[in-house]
Nucleic acid binder design. Structure first.
Lengths: 221, 221
DNA sequence: TAGATTGTTAATCGATTAACAATC
DNA sequence: TAGATTGTTAATCGATTAACAATC
């Protein structure tokens, strides 16, 4: 159990369920609840309580038998585990409808996400302001990052909301300014250095599951 | 092996990967390729060829040893398996930025999705046209569905892009007009009858995985 | 105390991968 | 034919669930 380089193997499904619990816990806090049991959480989401307990365990919190978990402690533990308690500065590239939707979504603030600037290739959009952010030309990515760096703000994440064709070159540019994470909404797999963490939002995967089930249900009748 | 009610247990991860292959296969067809091997597909996406073979097998196609799979046959098999070869008529509710993004996304046509109408609660949007669809008041869901039904168009799917609070009542309305599938973008789990298929797009799950990995990487250095 | 709840070990289930025979 | 590739069975891996002891 080395001090630093110990890479625990975290079950991805557990990490993915944490935001759901977090949302519920914040509601509970608003209602004034002090403690909550995993039985209660499980019930809310139609899961087994063991699963909730295992999921929560990865954050390091512990509850008290017979009592449950302290709501505020749990919220803090999940936020810290997910890195949502610290600000993450990001650039968003691609100000189409999807990019615009993300820029306008206020919920990300709760997750520590700070989209510092937005970029696009279309000159018609340059200078346009969206939710407080001015759209800049693509080729100002590096200079804007440099300017922010002088203010002590490091751009750690790139959000890619351009069409499939443009995604790889855009990602390369973002990697060029030193981002350490890419969140990709374009329907292509991006080739990135190993030390850049990568997540892809696969809308068509979700749609595929939905339509496949719908058609199989049809066939069953 | 009963004729109809045989519910095969399909691995969801396999279903989710099919759209990725489909996209690649369509590119291959555009290039004029006649056949493709799963070795080639696996290489493209950094997977094992066995996995690709297993994934393709669920669609029912078979390839030929030494040769590979016929590209057009494979495309047809995947599309049919996913139900993307038939038109699915849908209503979209919630014309915020996200709803707008989906209405403007042309790619869905390739998946057989036909968004027949869009609805919102905000009167300021009524009558506004988005990519050929007029925004209607929420309370016209039932009457619009009835009108379409007279034309022989059955609304089978509801796409929910309203804020979390509004999602459940909207879903209930959609279920009320007889949709058999709900595609939910709101960050809440919807309670639905068992015979309605349900898929949720969990952006925060994806974001959670990304930021958690980013922070753990930081900690490792 | 009795009962509810946590934390953990063992069993089960499902998906991925390895191994290999069949085949064009 | 030899080599590449498919299709399938068996082994492995990882996540979920069951079982139960510990505890407030």
């Amino acid at each position: 159990m080395k001090a630093s380089s110990r890479v625990r193997n975290l079950p991805t499904p557990s990490v993915q369920r944490l935001p759901v619990y977090l949302r519920f816990l914040k509601e509970a806090r608003r209602r004034g609840d002090d403690v909550v049991s995993c039985t209660r959480i499980a019930e809310e989401f139609g899961q087994r309580s063991v699963q909730v307990r295992k999921d929560l365990a990865i954050t390091g919190v512990s509850g008290r038998p017979k009592v449950g978990y302290r709501v505020d402690e749990l919220i803090e533990a999940i936020e810290s585990f997910l890195g949502w308690d610290v600000k993450t500065t990001a650039f968003l590239v691609g100000v189409g409808n999807l990019g615009r939707a993300l820029l306008n979504y206020e919920g990300f603030v709760e997750h520590g996400l700070d989209v510092a600037a937005a970029f696009d290739a279309n000159p018609a959009l340059f200078g346009q302001e969206i939710n407080g952010r001015v759209v800049r030309p693509l080729d100002q990515i590096a200079s804007t990052a440099a300017r922010l760096r002088e203010e002590g703000r490091i751009v750690e994440m790139g959000i890619v909301t351009v069409p499939a064709r443009a995604a790889q070159p855009v990602a390369d540019k973002l990697v060029g300014i030193g981002v350490r994470a890419i969140w990709n909404y374009a329907p292509v797999r991006l080739d990135l250095p190993n030390d850049v963490v990568y997540e892809e939002v696969k809308l068509s995967a979700s749609f595929a599951v939905l339509t496949n089930r719908l058609r199989r249900r049809d066939a069953d009748e």
